[in-house]
């Protein structure tokens, strides 16, 4: 539901980063989205298509890498990936794990043409 706001923020930050290199044109923005970030990739792509249309030339691309949930077992300290709902520890079967990652919404890089 808030993907339009997220897409416009990605575009805004991407353009600022590209503008740091004089004369460079923004070609693509890469983002990492955790499965727990509450952001839907398809809705984000749709918002991006609408928002990124330039008055002339080619629209910049949006590259999305979806990041799984990362957990650490509180019993045996094993770190493991799971789907968004979490899983029992694959080493000791404990249910008690702590979230390490998978909720990020990170602008990883921009690609520019110089």
């Amino acid at each position: 539901m808030h993907e339009v706001g997220i897409a416009s923020e990605i575009l805004r930050v991407g353009q600022i980063e590209a503008a740091r290199r004089p004369g460079a044109r923004l070609i693509a923005v890469s983002v990492r989205i955790g499965v727990l970030a509450g952001v839907d990739s398809d809705a984000l792509r749709f918002a991006w298509e609408v928002l990124s249309q330039p008055t002339e030339g080619v629209a910049p691309r949006l590259d999305i890498e979806v990041v799984p949930r990362r957990n650490r077992c509180e019993v045996c300290s094993m770190e493991f990936f799971s789907d968004m709902l979490g899983e029992d520890c694959p080493a000791c079967s404990s249910r008690n794990s702590r979230l390490l990652g998978g909720d990020e919404l990170q602008l990883a890089s921009v690609e520019v043409e110089e």
Binding site: I6, V13, E17, R21, A24, Q106, L107, A108, E111, V112
Partner: peptide
């Protein structure tokens, strides 16, 4: 020439 520039910033870093 295209260049990939690492940024590594939270998208909602302003918030």
């Amino acid at each position: 020439m295209t260049t990939v520039v690492p940024v590594e910033k939270k998208v909602l870093h302003e918030n």
